[in-house]
């Protein structure tokens, strides 16, 4: 297997400030998603939502290694990616509630947040639906010579889709600056990935000659380190990479998936929360290193909590689009 050990060491030194920024972002995603769950439970949110709680370190570690003008594509479980790439919670909530102030003027909802200003090409409700778009963005970045890269986020369920392998082949043939980030949270909906995935996951990339890395997706430092190296390598013209982040979703597949015992045990869920929580892991490390005192982290927590509450209140109070908007934006 190819490793990134030989690659440029862009992530070598990161100061306390950057780790605290990542901590803040992870808390922000966590509290955002807790609000989403609450909105759903209180029947204030139309449709469904797929919560990212538990997986925060993946989006944050990867997006911190990106430039603001780099691209991402996201998934049905996309709130974390969008926030980590710079979306603001108030317009995110507004979109989730179908309000005009939302990122897509209410037309997209939870599964389709898109935002050109932060390089977000769009979340996608088709499993593997964005692998072509991500590879195409890398193609144009290379052709235009603007130094951008694209990160394509997908769950391990997308490994079932043939289109992924078609674009990986193209990306390696043409040395495109795209990083395929596979978030392996162990389950495709209600089925363990071992029942749907034959062979070796990393081997799917290395068969094309694409460098592949696998990291503990609960450890934001490990994610950041690996992502930085693969992203810089792609930016320098060395082609695509494949990054598997091993992670876990704490909640159901979607907010309505409450009784999960038929596909995974409560003990398993408890174990991940107790032993592999990305926030706990980072805060413990920060304390051990003397980079942040518990009081600093508590202050961040309460600041973020206020921001999120203000954002959700903004969205609840915001107006719906007028029904005649329905026929706007079908064509450019």
């Amino acid at each position: 297997m190819t490793t990134v050990a030989q690659q440029p060491q862009a992530a070598a030194s990161v100061g306390a400030e950057a780790w605290l920024r990542m901590y803040r972002q992870m808390i922000s995603i966590r509290l955002f998603e807790e609000q989403v769950n609450d909105l759903y439970t209180r029947a204030l949110m139309p449709g469904l939502a797929h919560l990212y709680i538990g997986e925060e370190a993946v989006a944050v570690g990867v997006c911190q290694a990106l430039r603001p003008d780099d691209y991402i594509t996201s998934t049905h479980r996309g709130h974390g990616h969008c926030l980590a790439k710079g979306a603001s919670p108030d317009r995110m909530f507004a979109e989730l509630l179908g309000k005009e102030a939302g990122y897509c003027r209410g037309k997209g909802g939870s599964m389709h947040i898109a935002d050109p200003a932060t390089g977000n090409l769009g979340a996608n409700a088709i499993v593997a639906g964005s692998v072509g778009i991500a590879t195409g963005a890398a193609f144009s970045a290379k052709r235009l010579g603007n130094g951008r890269v694209c990160v394509c986020f997908f769950g391990e369920g997308a490994l079932g889709q043939g289109s992924l392998y078609e674009v990986m082949n193209l990306a390696q043939l043409w040395k495109l600056p795209v990083i395929y980030v596979c978030e392996n949270n162990l389950y495709n909906e209600y089925t363990h990935f071992s029942e749907t995935t034959a062979g070796d996951i990393m081997g799917r990339a290395t068969a094309f000659g694409i460098p592949a890395e696998s990291v503990d997706g609960q450890d934001v430092r490990a994610v950041y380190r690996a992502a930085s190296q693969l992203i810089e390598r792609a930016r320098l013209g060395n082609g695509p990479a494949f990054l598997v982040c091993n992670t876990y979703r704490y909640h159901g597949h979607h907010v309505g998936d409450i009784n999960r015992e038929y596909y995974r045990s409560k003990e398993e869920e408890q174990r991940w929360k107790a032993e592999h929580d990305p926030l706990k892991l980072l805060s413990r490390w920060l304390a051990e290193q003397g980079l942040a005192a518990p009081a600093d982290l508590e202050r961040i927590h309460s600041e973020v909590k206020k921001e999120i509450e203000a954002a959700v209140n903004f969205a609840i109070a915001a107006p719906y689009p007028s029904p005649d908007e329905v026929e706007q934006d079908i064509y450019a």
Partner: peptide, 13 residues
Amino acid sequence: MHVPIPFSPPLED
């Protein structure tokens, strides 16, 4: 209606 189905309830309806 000849549009992609919008998410927002007042539009979808």
